[in-house]
Amino acid sequence: MDGYNLPPSWPIGGAVNIEDYSCRYRDELDLVLKRISINILPGQKVGVCGRTGAGKSSLALALFRIVEAAEGHISIDQTITSHIGLHDLREKLTIIPQENVLFANTLRFNIDPKGDFSDQQLWTALENSNLKAHVETLPQKLESPVAEGGENFSVGQRQLLCLTRALLRKSKVLVLDEATAGIDNRTDAMVQATIREKFADSTIITIAHRLHTIMDYDRIIVMEAGKIVEDGIPAELLRNKNSKFYGLAKSAKIVG
């Protein structure tokens, strides 16, 4: 339904409602998400965790309609996402993925492909993502070439370039899919602090690889075999030593 008339300011709040949602990667395959229901409030910070294969990343793919619903639906600010053109949907949400996408082009193109922002805005975003100092050392600054896949930047720098792009777009809904799995703890802490400050009014859904990145979130969702098995405030889940979240935190040596 690409003809759906979406207000330019959508989404305003960033409420994400997932209702009885199931999906599979191909028609002949089993469901990877099974009748999931979540109501995420505008501006809420939600961490999604679980062991490998629990369905965490499938949830991120579902939000962007990279996989389509087998049943149920997802709505953002009460607009059902399957009613929106794919381009519009993906333009309005931001994901910082695990495997970041960089193009063989200039640095400027990689952070502002449509040329929507001024040099001042680009430099401010680079400063906020802790990349400004590095870019200032490059002879061609914003016009510096980026190699195919960003090979002339470190893994951490590539992640920070994706963060820079996200900071410019300033979406009301930000999804981080294990976005800091490939970078060191110091850079990770820096990224998390920037996200907390600059996206204070945005809804954040973090598919967590490292549990410590979501310990101060408003809410934790634990997934297992494509289902939600726990949903609560981190401190409360940790107080219950029989909770799945406590078990994950223990495995990660966050609790004794």
Rank of each mutant, 00 (worst) to 15 (best):
L142H: 01
Q157D: 00
V135T: 12
P139D: 10
K141P: 01
R108F: 00
N100M: 04
Q98W: 00
Q140I: 05
L131K: 05
Q140F: 13
Q157H: 12
T94M: 01
I95E: 05
N110C: 10
L122M: 06
L131Q: 11
L89S: 05
I111N: 02
K132Q: 11
G156I: 02
L131N: 09
Q98P: 00
F103Y: 13
V155M: 09
P113Y: 08
G150V: 03
L126K: 08
L93I: 03
N152M: 05
L126T: 00
H134R: 14
V135P: 00
Q121S: 14
V155K: 11
F117D: 03
R90P: 04
E143A: 09
R158N: 07
L163S: 06
V135R: 02
L160Q: 15
L163Q: 06
L161P: 00
A125V: 10
N105H: 13
N105C: 00
N110H: 01
I111D: 00
C162A: 15
K92P: 04
S154I: 01
C162E: 04
R90T: 12
A104S: 15
P113C: 11
F153L: 14
S154F: 08
E91Q: 14
L160I: 04
N130Q: 15
D119F: 12
L161E: 01
G156W: 02
R158V: 05
Q98D: 02
A104I: 00
K92L: 03
L126S: 01
P113D: 13
L89P: 07
I111P: 00
E127T: 09
K114V: 08
R90S: 05
I111R: 01
P113K: 07
N130E: 08
A147T: 11
L131C: 11
L142S: 09
L102D: 00
T124G: 07
S118L: 14
L163G: 07
E151G: 07
L163Y: 05
T124W: 03
P139I: 12
G150M: 02
L89N: 02
P97M: 04
Q159A: 07
Q157R: 11
N128K: 15
F117Y: 15
T124V: 14
N105A: 15
I95R: 00
S154C: 04
V146L: 04
F109T: 07
F153M: 01
T94A: 14
R108H: 13
Q140T: 14
G156L: 14
P97W: 02
L138I: 11
S129K: 03
I95Y: 00
L160P: 02
L93A: 08
L142F: 13
L163A: 14
F153V: 03
E127C: 09
V146M: 07
H134Y: 13
E91K: 13
E99S: 15
G150T: 07
G115K: 11
G115T: 13
R108N: 04
T124S: 14
G149M: 13
T106G: 06
E148P: 07
E136H: 04
N110L: 13
L122H: 11
A104T: 10
P113A: 05
A125S: 10
A133M: 12
N152K: 10
L138F: 08
A147E: 13
R108C: 12
T94H: 03
T137Y: 03
E148W: 06
K92T: 09
K132A: 14
N130R: 12
G156N: 09
N100V: 15
C162W: 03
N128H: 09
Q159C: 09
L161G: 07
F153T: 06
L161F: 03
G156Q: 11
R108L: 03
L93V: 13
